Amino acid sequence: MPLPFLTADRAFEAAEDYALPFDDRDRWRRPYRPGPWRVGVAAISLLLASYVLFAAVIIALTGSVSEAGVVLGIAVLIIIGALRLLRMGVWVSARGLRQVGFLLTRTVPWERVVAVRTVQQPVRWLGLPRTVQGQALTLVRRDGGAADRPVLLTTHNADFLARHGAFDRAADAVEAWADEHHGS
């Protein structure tokens, strides 16, 4: 079963002549692949969910259906969490820019975007409180001040840790979308 949210479109990787090779620009898409840290944590979570599902079957066979239902609910929550973890990231379409977090999704229409810039600044390492020096892709909104510049991508998040070339390609892709739609 193909999981379209797991991989970036192959057309983007194959196209070097132009920055936005997508036919359907109204469809939300992530212009980069999820990183190995994100995929690894999701895979381990799904492995844990399989053990919990197996435990639910064993509990149901022993006759305690209500307890099996509780364990089945825990397994479903683990699976939903793993899938949500895989969907996290920056998504673009002709309508705007969407930043999908684990619990919160923010969408900014292109009309409210002034610029998308890559800056050198302290960034969080794998989303933890520890900060290191790195690059960040920031969003400058029309209605926001200097302090309100959300960080979209960093060189040290779960998608780009130790993958600086992938960060540069993803940042260039998001900046290309912003440049194309800012002028229209």
Rank of each mutant, 00 (worst) to 15 (best):
G73C: 00
R95N: 10
V70F: 14
W91R: 10
L86P: 06
R98A: 12
V92S: 00
V123A: 05
R112A: 13
L97S: 08
V116E: 01
R124C: 09
L77R: 07
R106A: 01
V116P: 11
I79Y: 05
Q120D: 08
V116M: 04
V119K: 14
L72K: 00
V132L: 13
S66Q: 03
E111H: 06
W110Q: 01
G96N: 09
I80Y: 13
V114A: 02
P122A: 15
Q133G: 11
P109M: 07
A82S: 08
G96E: 06
R106Q: 03
S93W: 07
G89Q: 00
R130G: 02
V123W: 11
R106C: 02
S64Y: 01
F102G: 02
G96D: 02
L103S: 07
V92N: 02
T118C: 11
A82E: 11
R95K: 07
P109F: 05
V70I: 12
I79P: 01
V65G: 00
V76P: 03
T118L: 13
G63K: 10
R95W: 01
P109D: 08
V114D: 06
G63Q: 04
I79K: 02
R84T: 12
R87Y: 04
A68F: 14
V113N: 13
F102I: 06
L103P: 01
L77D: 04
A82W: 13
V113E: 00
R84E: 05
T107Q: 14
R87A: 09
R87H: 06
V113H: 10
A115Q: 15
P109E: 02
Q120C: 01
L97Q: 08
A94C: 06
I78Q: 01
Q99D: 12
W110V: 00
L103E: 06
I74F: 15
A115K: 15
R87K: 09
I78L: 15
G63C: 08
L85C: 02
